[in-house]
Design a binder for these strands. Structure first.
Ligand SMILES: Nc1ccn([C@H]2C[C@H](O)[C@@H](COP(=O)(O)OP(=O)(O)OP(=O)(O)O)O2)c(=O)n1
Ligand SMILES: [Mg+2]
Length: 1205
DNA sequence: ATCCTCCCCTAC
DNA sequence: TAAGGTAGGGGAGGAT
């Protein structure tokens, strides 16, 4: 193979020599020189240039499209894991001794319906066939099938299969395990007892019947529920069931309480977080229920092996040439799977047959470490040094922050620079006449590392933290990058080292060398900048460039290709690393071409070749389609390739993946992409996350607090570095999933978790207006939000603080969004000044308006929750806590001049012309329910809280621990709020309490779409309170400052108390800052405890009312199909019941569902002789099913488990 | 329609 | 040992 030779012949001149022949590329020369070893400037490389060419020329199947498969870690139920392991061993044994396999499935002919959850189809069929059974791929000749295997069935399928023997996959799995054919009825999916009532004893008889009940088919199980009529006939709450992967069919069912602890009582423990409660309910229900039939539900492995390879021979656009080739020929292993990249959720993708984790058990030493308290205290989040140490080592952190740095750098370099002239509006097609190149280093970290380790070239190597030796066989250390030699063996970026060793025992490791990467990257960008008309940062090893070259008319004269060669040459000379380059007429195609070019090559994709190139690709080759969307497309529409995608019906596609996605990916499927390169956008959020090594001692709230505050500091520091301030904070918290093992599969990883988020407005302590960049403030608010979540310290697994609604120089970035503007810029100062002046004018209007005018004028200028209510309030409304949406932040300097992002490339100059608009229109109309007056007349819409909400007998107050005298000193609104809080957080004494609480709820309008409440951090001395804080307290600053010191102090303290939910006269201002018990105090959440109106269906909120409605509804069901809207409304209601906001009322949700189920079953008895109803029954059942699925989704999210009805 | 909030997903 | 971060696109569902 000749180096520098074209991979493909040019199409336009079929017989012509390749470009390299026409104009020998420097690369070729270099390769030759390098090979000859005389070029000192070039690092030693293999004499591989010819090899590379050869590899490509052969059109060998050596390249998976999916070399990059980000992966994370999965875990799945021990039960299934063990089962698999056992089977694996057995299969291995069978392989060794082919005749030994018991032909237990000899006379079986099995059809497998849909996808199976606990085992992949190939695994299942192999199992079947190996044991003598026959796999029937299609069901067209039903008569020939003896059994059907399925894990779940739609109602219609259930009907269709009613006469068949339908069992779960575990029937086969366990039979194989035990070496004998087990009774399929024990694994029946359709209520075998009813169908095949044969007197056969069901070892776990209850199981079968429960299963039957669950799937509710035939008559048998109806008797379970039909004792009695009406409401009393509904199944007991106890039949709520949740299964998980550990569900064993062997669990005893006796002695189970008929009504498990799924208490529906209202006034339960309030300290328990809502999520916890949901999880607990689910667990209790699970415990209560005898284990159901096996229903492991970790994800199934994706079907066919990845076949994304593009045979080079099919493409005519290829053009190649290489400098020094990096590697010897490679024959990559078939990509074993399209592995997902997500969390450890058992239902999530990576819980596959092939874990991304090492196959070996965790070694003893690491297990011991996790039990060693001293060690943990030193090496996890419990240690004060943790954060700094962690970020110093985290590659992902380094990559992300370096990318931000690069974006900043490039923004500056290209400031004011324009894209090449356009003839007209871009179409995204070839006619646009652009030339886009996408340059990406090959196995970047590895290539960089190899520059100083020539001896490792050509070998399978990986960059990761783990050293090569020791316990590496079971190492969970993640491989950041691996060489193509390693990829040939099946290793992938993101895989754990232990797992990689399974594929490639001889793999060698290299350490991270971030400074080296940085210097290489900078040289790389330098080169790109020098050749391109415009560039865009994609990542530290990847860059998009629009280049200004003459069009290619004949393929043997390809200026873009020539330029690409120069770039590759220069990059290689400067860095010693290989980059690959894709060339085409838009961003999408350049990227895809780059993928095809890898490794160490160039690929120019010409317009004429696009179709041929695209059609065979899998859809996930398209940027933006990852595991989730790919599965969805495959599952719901059978779409696998881009060809399929092109043919999809637009409506159906939009239904499955959304409107915007549908549009975007349909365009992509045709190779159309009209996006422009971009480098000037301002960042819209700044965040810090740590989801590794988070371990706190039980009850060590102090450690948690310290950590959260430190995280706040860090995040604020990043804000300052970026010259930004924020108006909103989101706290992200990961909490160990109730069913996840305490020791995570990945060493000190987060494991399978529940994610909890809390949002709050922010306002600064400094004079800078509403926004803040103060670490103390950020930390304080974050800590309060943390407290509102109320998770036990030792269950925490991850934290993040995200700051949004950013401002630069007082101007919201949402609208400035051109990087240079406030940074350097020529004009920006003037522009800014104009904006600010404009703003000030608006603000002036606000403060001098009449009330009526205020509403409009105010809403134009300000935004945010309460910002549109321009008047200050004299007393803090009860809002903040109760989740009353609006907490008033009349932004101090109201610097919210905003321009509409009306065109893609607004430059600084345009700024002055941009329009002002409110930050949020949404909130502009929110009327504060109670706005008492104290210092100044308020707008007339202000209403006092109704008496009932604020009235309480002294005994009641005392019961709640409220000092009556203090209480009386509060205004009515505050009284109402305090009362509501108290009543919510503690069972009322005696009578009307619950009702009262509800009344309060009714008083407080629920505003779903309001910004979160603000938590302001007040300084110790009232003299230090800033204007914006005063406004946040609903005072006019002028007025506030005229108050006496004592009154000021009192008001500040009042506000503080209100925020902290400390009601009593505890004015010691010590807050909770240093109070380690604060964490445990029974404090209502800062937010989210909003008493929302209870979920409602057809106007009913009470269970009984709803059941009645359902009965009524079903009354006419025999003649009428269900109205879609009704079904949807019921679905929404059910979802809300189960939602966090409503306390995860699973009991109510399931009762309603079971009642509905029962009604459907009685309306449509299984009797076969019923006259044909024209499909009405099916519609009711599928309606039911759709609601079940909605509920499932919510419950799965809340508890990680699956609800079983 | 278009906005908003609160997510999930994707990419490196 | 090991260091699972981070910004942005987009959808769902609700308010305007
Ligand atoms: N899961 C991952 C994926 C990537 N990276 C880092 C290491 C990679 O070297 C770098 C660039 O990522 P690429 O996706 O470009 O992968 P490589 O450059 O390693 O390989 P190639 O581009 O040849 O496919 O990012 C990482 O740390 N973890
Ligand atoms: Mg790369």
């Amino acid at each position: 193979m000749m180096s520098g030779q074209l991979q493909k012949r040019p199409r336009a001149a079929q017989d012509g020599p390749g470009p390299s022949a026409m104009a020998p590329p420097p690369a070729k020369r270099r390769a030759e020189v390098g090979t000859s070893g005389t070029d000192q400037s070039s690092p030693p490389t293999n004499d591989a240039s010819s090899v590379k060419d050869g590899a490509i020329d052969e059109g060998e199947d050596y390249r998976d499209q999916d070399f990059y498969e980000p992966v994370k870690f999965g875990e799945f139920g021990k039960y299934m894991r063990n089962k698999r392991r056992k089977l694996k061993v057995q299969n291995a044994a069978l392989l060794e001794d082919g005749n030994a396999r018991p032909q237990i499935f000899k006379n079986l002919r099995v059809y497998v319906n849909g996808f199976t959850e606990s085992i992949t189809l190939p695994e299942l069929t192999e199992l079947l066939v190996r044991h003598g059974g026959e796999y029937v791929p299609y069901l067209d000749k039903k008569g020939l099938v003896t059994h059907i295997i399925a894990t779940n069935l739609t109602p219609s399928k259930r009907k269709e299969f009613a006469k068949y023997k339908v069992a779960t996959p575990n029937w086969l799995v366990e039979s194989a395990e035990q070496g004998r054919l087990l009774d399929w009825r024990e694994y029946s999916l359709l209520g075998a007892k009813a169908q095949y009532e044969s007197g056969a004893t069901f070892g776990e008889g209850t199981l079968a019947s429960e299963e039957a009940a669950r799937l509710g088919t035939q008559t048998g199980q109806r008797s379970l529920f039909s004792m009695g009529v009406g409401r009393h006939g509904k199944p007991p709450a106890g039949s709520l069931a949740v299964s998980n992967g550990d569900d064993r069919p062997t669990a005893s069912t006796s002695g189970r309480p008929p009504h498990p602890t799924v208490s529906t009582s209202k006034n339960v423990e309030t300290r328990e977080s809502l999520a916890e409660r949901g999880a607990r309910l689910a667990r209790e229900a699970l415990r209560a229920q005898a284990a159901g039939p096996l229903h492991s539900f970790f994800a199934q492995s994706p079907g066919a092996p990845n076949t994304g390879t593009i045979p080079a021979s099919t493409s005519k656009s290829v053009s190649v040439e290489l400098p020094a080739a990096p590697t010897r020929p490679i024959t990559p292993a078939k990509s074993t799977s399209t592995l997902p990249a997500t969390t450890d959720s058992p239902t999530k993708p990576n819980a596959l047959t092939r874990s991304w984790l090492p196959s070996k058990e965790r070694n003893e030493r690491t297990a011991a470490l996790l039990k060693d308290e001293d060690w943990l205290a030193k090496h996890t989040s419990a240690s004060p040094d943790f954060l700094a140490g962690y970020f110093a080592q985290s590659r992902l952190h380094w990559i992300s922050s370096f990318k931000e740095e690069l974006k900043d750098l490039i923004a500056t370099k290209q400031q004011g620079k324009d894209l090449p002239k356009r003839r007209g509006k871009l179409t995204g097609g070839a006619v646009d006449g652009r030339t886009i190149i996408h340059v990406d280093f090959d196995c970047f970290f590895v290539s960089a590392g190899l520059t100083s380790r020539p001896e490792l070239r050509g070998k399978p190597v990986a960059v990761c933290h783990a050293r090569g030796k020791g316990e590496a066989a079971s190492s969970t250390s993640e491989i950041a990058s691996c060489s193509y030699e390693a990829r040939a063996a099946g290793v992938r970026n993101g895989m754990s080292l232990g797992r990689a060793r399974d594929f490639c025992p001889e793999i060698q490791t290299m350490p991270f060398e971030f400074e080296l990467y940085r210097s290489i990257t900078l040289k790389f960008y330098e080169i790109l900048l020098s050749h391109a008309a415009y560039i865009q940062v994609v990542s530290m090893d990847e860059c998009l460039a629009e280049v200004d070259v003459p069009p290619t008319i004949f393929r043997d004269q390809d200026p873009a290709l020539d330029l690409a060669r120069r770039i590759r040459r220069e990059v290689y000379d400067a860095t010693g690393c290989q980059a690959s380059i894709g060339i085409s007429h838009n961003i999408l195609l350049a990227r895809l071409a780059m993928r095809k070019a890898k490794p160490a090559n160039i690929f120019h994709l010409f317009p004429e070749d696009v179709d041929e190139f695209l059609l065979p690709l899998d859809v996930d080759a398209l940027p933006g389609i990852g595991w989730s969307l790919r599965e969805k497309l495959q599952r719901e529409l059978g779409i696998k390739t881009i060809r399929d995608l092109r043919q999809a019906a637009p409506a159906k596609l939009a239904d499955a993946i959304g409107r915007g996605n549908s549009k975007k990916f349909t365009s992509f499927a045709f190779g159309v992409d009209d996006a422009e390169l971009e480098s000037q956008k301002l960042r819209q959020s700044v965040s810090t996350e740590v989801n590794y090594g988070i371990r706190f001692g039980p009850g060590r709230v102090d450690q948690v607090e310290r950590f959260v505050r430190e995280l706040g500091d860090e995040t604020a520091k990043r804000l300052r570095t970026a010259g930004l301030k924020a108006r909103q904070i989101v706290l992200h918290v990961m909490i160990r999933h109730p069913d996840a093992p305490v020791d995570t599969p990945k060493f000190l990883g987060h494991g399978h978790v529940n994610q909890e988020n809390r949002t709050s407005a922010l306002s600064g302590s400094g004079g800078g207006g509403g926004a803040t960049d103060d670490g103390g403030v950020v930390g304080e608010v974050a800590w309060r939000l943390m407290s509102s979540i109320g998770a036990p310290a030792h269950e925490l697994r991850g934290f993040g603080i995200q700051l949004t609604k950013l401002e630069r120089d007082g101007v919201s970035v949402e609208t400035v969004h051109e990087k240079g503007q406030s940074r350097l810029s020529f004009k920006p100062r003037a522009v800014l000044a104009a904006a600010v002046a404009n703003e000030a004018a608006q603000a002036a209007v606000v403060s001098s308006s009449t009330n009526a005018e205020i509403a409009t004028a105010g809403s134009r200028v300000t935004s945010g929750p309460a910002k549109d209510r321009p008047t200050r309030r004299d007393v803090i409304p009860p809002a903040a806590k109760a989740g009353q949406p609006d907490t008033l932040v009349l932004d101090s300097d109201s610097s919210e001049a905003e321009s509409r992002p009306d065109h893609k490339h607004t430059r600084g100059m345009d700024m002055a012309a941009t329009r002002l608009r409110p930050r949020s229109r949404q909130s502009s109309r929110s009327v504060e329910p109670y706005i008492p007056t104290m210092f100044k007349p308020t707008k007339k819409s202000a209403r006092a809280a109704p008496k009932s909400a604020s009235q309480a007998a002294p005994e009641e107050l005392l019961y709640y621990g409220i000092d009556p005298e203090t209480f009386m000193s509060f205004d009515r609104a505050l009284q109402a709020e305090i009362l509501a809080d108290a009543r919510r957080s503690k069972p009322p004494p005696g009578k009307a309490k619950t009702k009262n609480a509800r009344k309060t709820a009714a008083v407080a309008p629920t505003k779903q779409q309001s910004a979160p409440p603000e938590i302001i951090v007040l300084p110790a001395s009232p003299a230090e309170v800033t204007d914006s804080q005063i406004r946040a307290m609903q005072y006019d600053p002028e007025i506030f400052r005229e108050l006496g010191k004592a009154t000021q102090a009192e008001q500040v303290e009042l506000h503080r108390a209100r925020q902290a939910r400390t009601v009593t006269g505890d004015r010691t201002a010590r807050l909770h800052r240093n109070d380690p018990t604060a964490y445990r105090r029974n404090r209502p959440p800062v937010k989210d405890v909003t008493v929302r109106p209870p979920p409602r269906f057809q106007g009913q909120t009470e269970l009984s009312g709803i059941l009645d409605r359902l009965e009524l509804w079903m009354g006419t069901a025999t003649d009428r199909a269900p109205d879609r809207g009704d079904v949807d409304a019921l679905g929404r209601y059910i979802e809300k019941c189960a939602a966090r906001e409503h306390g995860h009322n699973l009991a109510q949700a399931t009762e309603v569902m079971q009642w509905w189920r029962y009604l459907i079953d009685s309306t449509f008895p299984p009797a076969a002789d019923r006259p044909d109803d024209g499909g009405i029954e099916g519609l009711w059942r599928s309606g039911y099913q759709s609601v079940v699925e909605r509920l499932d989704r919510v419950v799965e999210k809340a508890t990680g488990q699956r609800l079983r009805l």
